[in-house]
């Protein structure tokens, strides 16, 4: 059962197909995927490992092109964009990577300041002031001179988030934000996420396998299993999906009993 959301969509996937050439046969990751990401809301993309969750993020960012179909951000199709246009589009995004992807030869301060230094014409004093404010907000004060290798997993995520939010992005993409973190740290990251989203009002797309905990943050859930995809506004709708592979996923992973209808 696919529900349509009436909010303004910032991202739309229209009949998107992605497959990779395997050794023996083609591995279909997305088959005619259709969904929208509503503005200012949180969309959670969940599914097992290797089911194409991160592929969706790469498609949104234009790091990967679909075999067919359209990936619309606003009204523009990312799938057919040239390099310069893509660079312009990417300014709208903030990304928190799975391994945080901090530049290990730069300090915490330099990491957070990097997008401001490279992508804005702000003066040095303004950059320092803005970074200091962010450091305080994300409770990273006193760690600005450390290198990423000297930080704990949770702290790296916070620095990654701080860096992702520097250019005030409209859309923030989270790739497995709690992988490798203990339950306390995971809760802390979730709280931090809720706080920053309330303050900044960005649209969030979270890819995660932390199910069902991650559903508590979601306004919309996209489930992926073996090339099939379904969209829900409430976790309780998952067992009612019209897609067999999604119902199978719900039964195996979420422990939901299959319900006909």
């Amino acid at each position: 059962m696919t529900l349509t959301l009436h909010e303004e969509a910032v991202i739309r996937f229209v009949d998107v197909c992605v497959s990779f050439a395997g050794r023996m046969q083609e591995n279909i990751v997305l088959d005619q995927a259709n969904f929208t990401v509503p503005k200012g809301k949180t969309t959670v993309i969940a599914g097992g490992s290797g089911q194409g969750k991160s592929v969706i993020l790469k498609l949104i960012l234009g790091l990967l092109r679909p075999n067919s179909g359209q990936v619309l951000v606003g009204e523009k199709n990312i799938a057919t964009m040239g390099y310069a246009q893509l660079q312009e589009q990417r300014m709208r995004f903030g990304v928190l990577f799975q391994g945080s992807a901090l530049f290990d030869s730069l300090t915490v301060f330099e990491n957070i300041a990097l997008p401001l230094r490279e992508r804005t014409s702000m003066r040095n004093e303004e950059i320092v002031a803005k970074v200091q404010t962010t450091l305080k907000q994300l409770e990273l004060g006193g760690h600005e001179d450390k290198y990423p290798a000297q930080l704990s997993g949770g702290m790296k995520k916070r620095v990654g988030l701080a860096r992702a939010l520097q250019l005030d992005p409209e859309i923030v993409l989270f790739d497995e934000p709690t992988t490798g973190l203990d339950p306390v740290m995971t809760r802390e990251i979730y709280e931090l996420f809720t706080q920053t989203q309330q303050r900044l009002g960005y649209t969030a797309v979270i890819v995660s396998h932390d199910i069902p905990q991650i559903f508590s943050l979601a306004d919309q859930i996209i489930l992926l299993n073996k090339g099939e995809l379904d969209v829900f506004t409430n976790p309780s709708q998952i067992p009612l999906s019209s897609k067999t592979k999604i119902r199978e996923f719900a039964r195996l992973v979420l422990g939901y009993e299959e319900t006909k209808g």
């Binding site: 960012l61 660079q87 990577f97 992807a101 901090l102 530049f103 290990d104 997008p115 992508r119 250019l167």
Partner: peptide
Amino acid sequence: IMRISEQIDALECMAI
């Protein structure tokens, strides 16, 4: 190392 730890992807995502 920058490639496998997604640092190059991060630069591209920041439009750098």
